[in-house]
Amino acid sequence: MAHIQLPIAPELGREFPGILGPMTFRPETAAPLNELVNVLLRGESTLSRGERELIATHVSWRNDCLFCQSIHGALAAAQLGHDEALVQKVKTDWADANISPKLKALLNIAGKVQLGGKHVTAEDIAAARDLGATDLEIHDTVLIAAVFCLCNRYVDGLGTWAPQDPGIYRERAAKVVEHGYTAVTETAIASMQD
């Protein structure tokens, strides 16, 4: 049970899973959070949407947040040819995964951000730059990692529940891929008012 009384999803007869619980509880903070995640993970970028979801997934795995690593892992897979084995590899052992050297350098930076901002060294940045990472890509990597240090704490700090069935995450990921983060939250809020 969550630490606070969250809205009940009519179709589930219980709270909305994961971050949707607190987002339906407090739409005023859900709006800027969704806008931020939409820009970072779905907005225009020289990093693909799948690559950015991999960064979010790896950070959420490092923070041991089941809901976030599952939904963002499903979102990464959905945008990377449904390669769920690759997503699993990037969570636990990106150094050995079949991804570009540049993405590895960015995942290294993201992992340092997860530990704390001061863990990122000039060498980490130089390594990413040598592999072609731009200032904007480095900026967005740091901010994606920082944002998931927020989201993971928000989800687990309120004691929300996470579905165990991978199928639920695949279904929900398909909706986010099609409609974006904001629309999925707004649909959940609207379902409470039906």
Binding site: G117, K118, V120, V142, A146, C149, L150
Partner: peptide, 12 residues
């Protein structure tokens, strides 16, 4: 949670 983001953004 938000300051765990802002702090990492500033120092990262």
């Amino acid at each position: 949670a938000a300051f765990c983001m802002y702090n990492r953004y500033v120092d990262g």
